[in-house]
């Protein structure tokens, strides 16, 4: 059982408390910073702090720092594939209409639930209607 005990890495109490307080301090900071406006940097700052917090949780509470490297690989791997998913999808969603303007058009129209509320803007309804139809014809079952 000796090697088992070595693998159990009983961490000192103070370390846990320090990490816990670090997380709380970071929470305070991120809320405080969010009260100010840094424009485009808002997202970056908030996500940066979140990543630091997440790393602390993963490294110390989840013992990734001390455990077998394979768990780190599994965890980082999951984030990697999630990144592929989001980034590759954005290759599409952020760049529609680069060449043909109308391909980008149909989407992101106001939803039908807002239409009943107002009555005076018939022309915009008609535009929305036709674009919905366009969306449907364009996205008819196409797969292989």
């Amino acid at each position: 059982m000796k090697d088992d005990a070595a693998q159990r890495h009983i961490l000192p109490l103070n370390l846990y408390l320090a990490v816990g307080s670090g997380l709380l301090v970071l929470t305070v900071i991120t809320v405080a910073v969010a009260q100010m406006d840094f424009g485009q940097m808002n997202l970056l700052i908030a996500m940066g702090i979140a990543v630091v917090k997440a790393t602390l949780v993963a490294m110390f509470f989840m013992h990734l720092k001390y455990d077998n490297r394979i768990y780190m690989l599994v965890f980082v791997g999951s984030l990697l594939f999630l990144g592929v998913f989001i980034i590759f999808t954005m290759f599409d969603t952020l760049r529609r209409g680069d060449i043909y303007e109308e391909i980008a058009e149909p989407y992101q129209k106001e939803a039908v639930i807002y239409r009943t509320a107002e009555t005076g803007t018939a022309s915009s309804h008609a535009a929305a209607d036709s674009s919905h139809n366009a969306a449907e014809t364009e996205t008819e079952t196409s797969d292989h």
């Binding site: 394979i70 768990y71 599994v74 965890f75 791997g77 999951s78 984030l79 594939f81 999630l82 998913f85 989001i86 999808t89 954005m90 969603t93 952020l94 989407y107 992101q108």
Partner: peptide, 24 residues
């Protein structure tokens, strides 16, 4: 840990949903 990996990707679909519509 592999179960946690599946959890990350399960939530990942929703994070993707969020990211796309936020960017739009």
């Amino acid at each position: 840990w592999i179960f946690l990996l599946t959890e990350v990707l399960l939530f990942g679909g929703l994070f993707c949903f969020y990211a796309i519509y936020r960017s739009w």
